[in-house]
C-alpha cells in the first residue's frame, strides 16, 4: 500500500485532501512547512510526495532541490496555485516529476498519482497477479476474473500482503503487526473478522476459498491453478 507525504500549509485544503486520499486506501502523512516536509521525506518511508510551493520556509522549490541534491528518488508531484509557464518550468527543473495547478479535479490528482507511482516502481509492474486475481497496487483496485471488488483499507492491506507472497504461510502475529503495528491488534478477534469479510468479498460464488486457514499456524493464499 502506497504511503504518501502531503505537504500543504492550508489546513482547509489539506484536511479534505487527506480524507480523499485515505478513502483511496493511501496512507497519508502530513507536513505543514518545508522543514517538516524534509524531515518526513528523509525517513524514506514514502512512495510519493504531494508538494505545495508556497509554504513556510524552506519553500517547496527548495525542498525539491534539497531532496534531489541528496540523491533521493522520491516521486514528487507539485500541487500549487502558481500557474505561469516560468513557475511550472522552475518546478519541474527543481526536480519534481509532475506539476498540477490549483484548483484541480480530485480525479485528475488521483490519476497523476497512480501514474507517478507506476513510474516510481522503477519499471516494475504495479500490478500483482495471482491466478485470476489482479491487484493494482498504485490505484488500489482489486479485480477478480475481471470484476472489480471494493475493499476497505485494512482489507486491501491484508490482501496485498498475501498477494506479494502467494503460497507462503502468514502467521497471525505477523499479520497483526502489519495491520496495527502491534502484534496483538485492537483485540484478537479483529483479524478473524477482517479475514472473513475479505473472503466474503473475494469469493462469494467460488467453490474454494482463496485464503485458507492453517489451524494454529496462520493463513495462506492459494494460487488459482492449485484450486483446479
Amino acid at each position: 500500500m502506497a504511503r504518501l507525504l502531503l505537504v500543504e500549509d492550508e489546513d482547509f485544503l489539506a484536511r479534505s485532501l487527506q480524507v480523499g486520499l485515505e478513502d483511496e486506501l493511501y496512507l497519508v502523512d502530513r507536513a505543514g512547512n518545508g522543514e517538516e516536509a524534509l524531515w518526513h521525506a528523509r525517513s524514506g518511508h514514502h512512495d510519493a510526495m504531494i508538494l505545495d510551493l508556497r509554504i513556510p520556509p524552506p519553500s517547496g522549490l527548495d525542498v525539491c532541490r534539497c531532496l534531489r541534491a541528496e540523491g533521493r528518488k522520491l516521486p514528487i508531484l507539485i500541487l500549487t496555485a502558481c500557474d505561469t509557464p516560468q513557475e511550472v518550468v522552475a518546478g519541474l527543473d527543481a526536480g519534481a516529476d509532475d506539476y498540477l495547478t490549483k484548483p484541480f479535479a480530485f480525479e485528475v490528482l488521483l490519476a497523476r498519482l497512480r501514474a507517478l507511482l507506476r513510474r516510481g516502481s522503477g519499471g516494475q509492474s504495479a500490478e500483482l497477479r495471482v491466478g485470476n486475481l489482479r491487484i493494482d497496487t498504485a490505484g488500489h483496485r482489486v479485480y477478480r476474473a475481471g470484476r472489480e471488488i471494493s475493499l476497505t483499507r485494512m482489507e486491501f492491506l491484508l490482501l496485498e500482503n498475501f498477494a506479494r507472497n502467494p503460497g507462503a504461510l502468514q502467521s497471525r502475529s505477523k499479520l497483526s503487526a502489519l495491520l496495527w503495528e502491534d502484534e496483538l491488534g485492537p483485540d484478537s478477534n479483529s483479524l478473524d473478522v477482517l479475514i472473513s469479510s475479505l473472503r466474503k468479498k473475494l469469493d462469494p460464488d467460488h467453490p474454494r476459498r482463496l485464503i485458507q486457514t492453517k489451524r494454529g499456524l496462520g493463513y495462506i493464499l492459494i494460487e488459482e491453478s492449485e484450486l483446479g
Partner: peptide
C-alpha cells in the same frame, strides 16, 4: 494580479476539493 489570483486559488481549491471528496462516497 498574480499574487491575488494565487491567494484566491488556494481557498477555491479548498472548497472544490472538500466538496469533491465529500461527494465521492
Amino acid at each position: 494580479t498574480s499574487d491575488a489570483s494565487h491567494e484566491l486559488r488556494n481557498p477555491i481549491a479548498g472548497i472544490q476539493n472538500a466538496a469533491e471528496v465529500a461527494l465521492r462516497q
